[in-house]
């Protein structure tokens, strides 16, 4: 009896220790993530300067306002454009590269992998500025194109709406393909080689093997990288700020960039309205995460 009591005491102590271990991280997440998102929602219902904020009239004013705000709508369209073009190209490229690098007969594997992975070693600001310089009117790409004769005179890539958008997409693909490839390489290494041997014996072609064996087995990885990429693209900021400054004339601005400008940029700032717009991104990301969980549930 006494012994049992002592044992219970020990378990209780251990349980208490368990709680103690996870308390700092939990508290920090509550204070730095959950509490601010609630505050952001409350702030989104208010208007006025940061020192003197009052409830909106009507209360949903900031939320309805954003849908008639042409600039915000443009930033939404831009962000989705980047997303719809960049994510598929990048993921297909990443799978292809991973597949090529997973071939056991391939030589210089480590070298190729390091090269493809290297862009991840730059900060987002660094690579944005490198691309900005490469594509500048007096930049390297222009001087090559003029020398080769494709262009007759230097072209202002970053000052023209369509090319500026294209360059953001190219830059994103450059920076993130290797990053995603790492996931696919890890995923491919988990596939037993015997599966491929069996397919070979059954006479399946390389393409068929890829489509009917590799892709289904990689599905969880594909879903995950897709979710991560969408999540990241929805929050795109550094590239828009440093590569194009959102320009020309705000035509390449992203949602996060516009929210930043509305809250900390030059000129008039409006915390309430910015908070409402940021809540819009939050809802997009949350819906996405929800879909992710649904898809994730059925994958086994």
């Amino acid at each position: 009896m006494n012994r049992k009591k002592k044992e219970m005491n020990i378990t209780a102590k251990q349980q208490a220790a368990g709680w103690a271990f996870l308390t700092p991280a939990t508290l920090l997440l509550v204070i730095m993530s959950f509490y601010p998102i609630i505050q952001a929602f409350i702030m989104a219902l208010k208007t006025g300067s940061s020192a003197n904020m009052q409830w909106c009239e009507p209360i949903t004013y900031n939320f309805t306002r954003m849908f008639s705000d042409k600039l915000f709508m443009r930033s939404v369209v831009n962000t989705f454009l980047y997303l719809l073009i960049e994510v598929p190209i990048m993921l297909v490229l990443a799978i292809l590269l991973a597949q090529l690098l997973n071939n056991k007969d391939l030589k210089f594997k480590g070298f190729f992998r390091t090269c493809v992975f290297l862009p991840c070693a730059t900060s987002l600001v660094s690579y944005a500025l490198i691309f900005k310089s490469l594509f500048a009117t007096e930049g390297l790409i222009n001087s090559i194109l003029v020398k080769v004769g494709i262009l007759s005179e230097n072209f202002n890539f970053l000052g023209t709406t369509y090319t500026a958008k294209a360059i953001i997409i190219i830059a994103l693909i450059w920076r993130w393909t290797g990053y995603n490839m790492v996931f696919f390489l890890a995923g491919l290494q988990n596939i037993e080689y015997s599966v491929y041997e069996a397919a070979k014996i059954d006479g399946a072609s390389g393409w068929k093997t890829f489509w009917h064996i590799t892709v289904p087995l990689l599905k969880p990885t594909i879903v995950m990288t897709m979710i991560m990429s969408i999540n990241g693209t929805l929050q795109l900021f550094d590239e828009s700020v440093n590569l194009t400054k959102g320009g020309p004339a705000n035509s390449t601005i992203t949602m996060s960039h516009y929210i930043y400008n509305s809250s900390f940029g030059e000129g008039t700032t409006n915390f309430g309205y910015a908070a409402a717009m940021s809540f819009f991104i939050f809802i997009l990301v949350a819906v996405l995460a929800f879909i992710n969980m649904k898809v994730g549930d059925t994958r086994d």
């Binding site: 993530s33 959950f34 505050q39 900021f237 996060s256 929210i259 940021s278 939050f282 990301v285 995460a289």
Partner: peptide, 14 residues
């Protein structure tokens, strides 16, 4: 769930 919270949404309150 905190994974769902985008940085830009907590930026102003923080």
């Amino acid at each position: 769930l905190a994974m769902m919270v985008p940085q830009v949404a907590t930026m102003i309150p923080l």
